[in-house]
C-alpha cells in the first residue's frame, strides 16, 4: 500500500518506466524520511521531449523544534538542567544555548546532560527549523529521483506545494506551461 494519499505516475508510452519510477520514488523518499510530510504526489515524464516533472502537496508545515522537544528541562541550582533524549539535534542545541547564554554559562557535565546558568527557562527556545531542513532534503531527493541526464532543472517551493521539472534541453516557458497543464489534468482525472 502506498503511504501517500494520492500517488500518480504517468509516462506516455513507457508502462514499465511508470511502474519502476513509483518504486524509485518511494525508495528514495523513504530513505530520506520524507514520505510522511507529503500528502499527494503527481509525476509526469515525457521521454520523447524529454522532460521529467514532479508536483506535490505537503501535509502541513512542520513546527520548529524547541528545547523541550529534545529533552527534559528541570530547574537545578542557579539555573536549569536539560536531560537530552534526542541526540540527533544535540549539536544544534549546544550552539543555540551558547548563542543565548554565552559559553561560560553553559556546561555539559555528561554526554546527555546540559546545565544552563540563567533565571529564565530555556524550554521554549527554538533549536532547529524542521520545515527548512525538510525542504532542503526534498530538493536533494528530487535531484536523485530525476533521470541523471536531465540537468536543466527548475524547483519551485511554495508554502503548501512544490513543483520540480528537469529536462535535457533548456527549459522553456512553453514546456513548463505544458507540464503544468498535464499535471492539472492528472489532478482532475
Amino acid at each position: 500500500m502506498d503511504p501517500l494519499e494520492v500517488f500518480k505516475v504517468e509516462a506516455p508510452g513507457e508502462e514499465y518506466g511508470e511502474k519502476k519510477y513509483r518504486e524509485i520514488l518511494l525508495d528514495i523518499l523513504q530513505d530520506l524520511g520524507l514520505v510522511r510530510s507529503i500528502g499527494r504526489l503527481y509525476v509526469y515524464a515525457d521521454i520523447s521531449k524529454p522532460y521529467f516533472a514532479v508536483f506535490g502537496l505537503f501535509r502541513g508545515a512542520l513546527p520548529p523544534l524547541l528545547v523541550r522537544d529534545i529533552g527534559d528541562v528541570a530547574a537545578a541550582g542557579d539555573g536549569f538542567q536539560i536531560k537530552v533524549n534526542d541526540e540527533e539535534h544535540l549539536a544544534d542545541l549546544v550552539r543555540v544555548l551558547w548563542e543565548r547564554y554565552g559559553r561560560d554559562n553553559v556546561e555539559q557535565p555528561d554526554r546527555d546532560i546540559l546545565t544552563v546558568i540563567s533565571k529564565d527557562s530555556p524550554a521554549d527556545i527554538p533549536v532547529a527549523d524542521l520545515d527548512r531542513e525538510f525542504r532542503q532534503d526534498l530538493t536533494d531527493a528530487l535531484i536523485r529521483i530525476a533521470p541523471e541526464g536531465f540537468r536543466n532543472r527548475m524547483n519551485e517551493m511554495k508554502e503548501d506545494s512544490f513543483f520540480f521539472i528537469a529536462a535535457e534541453e533548456t527549459l522553456t516557458s512553453e514546456m513548463i506551461a505544458e507540464v503544468r497543464e498535464k499535471i492539472r489534468g492528472m489532478m482532475n482525472a
Binding site: 508510452g13 513507457e14 514499465y16 518506466g17 521521454i47 524529454p50 533521470p147
Partner: peptide
Amino acid sequence: ACVFMFGNFVQC
C-alpha cells in the same frame, strides 16, 4: 566482455 547498465525507459 562488458555489461552496459541502462535505465527504465525504452527510448533511452
